[in-house]
């Protein structure tokens, strides 16, 4: 079947098998390998991207379901050389180690803060319940998201 998606501002039209998952469409059809696969049970969130601005697990969305939608992946987050405030906060707070969960974690965090910029630590921890990280113990991720949320409230986004 034919699908047409806008990914990071660029429209792509491809012929795919109906069973093609969005994550494989991004990785294999478009070569956007920033989005990772970490599990097969919709648990880990490594594959999180934004669909029409909201976080979704791209391993549990068919490319067919994303037909006509707008997708943002980690590759589309920065404005040229200028890191998104969430990316900057992850760096400044050492919110990543091996980097594997990072793209999904950052996208989930962007969606979380966009929906509710006025959040506290508990809210951040619960809001990231669907994104697993094995390296950081989440401490610095939570600090980064709180910091980015602060900058969002101050109008920096």
């Amino acid at each position: 079947m034919r699908v047409k998606l806008e990914v990071n501002g660029v429209t792509h039209e491809r012929e795919v098998e109906p069973r093609t998952l969005l994550v494989y469409f991004l990785r294999e059809e478009l070569g956007l390998t920033g989005t990772n696969v970490g599990c097969d049970t919709t648990s880990c969130g490594a594959c999180t991207v934004l669909m029409d601005g909201e976080s979704v697990k791209s391993c549990t969305v068919l490319a067919a379901q994303a037909d006509g939608r707008s997708i943002t992946t980690i590759e589309g987050l920065a404005e040229g050389e200028e890191l998104h405030p969430m990316q900057r906060a992850f760096r400044e707070h050492h919110g990543l180690q091996c980097g594997y969960c990072t793209p999904g974690m950052v996208m989930a965090a962007v969606s979380l803060v966009t929906e509710s910029p006025d959040l506290d630590e508990t809210h951040v921890r619960e809001g990231l319940e669907g994104n697993l990280c094995r390296c950081t113990g989440y401490h610095n991720i939570v600090a980064a998201v709180l910091d980015a949320a602060r900058s969002s409230r101050e109008g920096a986004w």
Binding site: G45, E54, S55, K57, V61, A108, S111, L112, E129, G130
Partner: peptide, 8 residues
Amino acid sequence: GDPQVRHR
């Protein structure tokens, strides 16, 4: 579930 699940 989690926010991503609730979005879908």
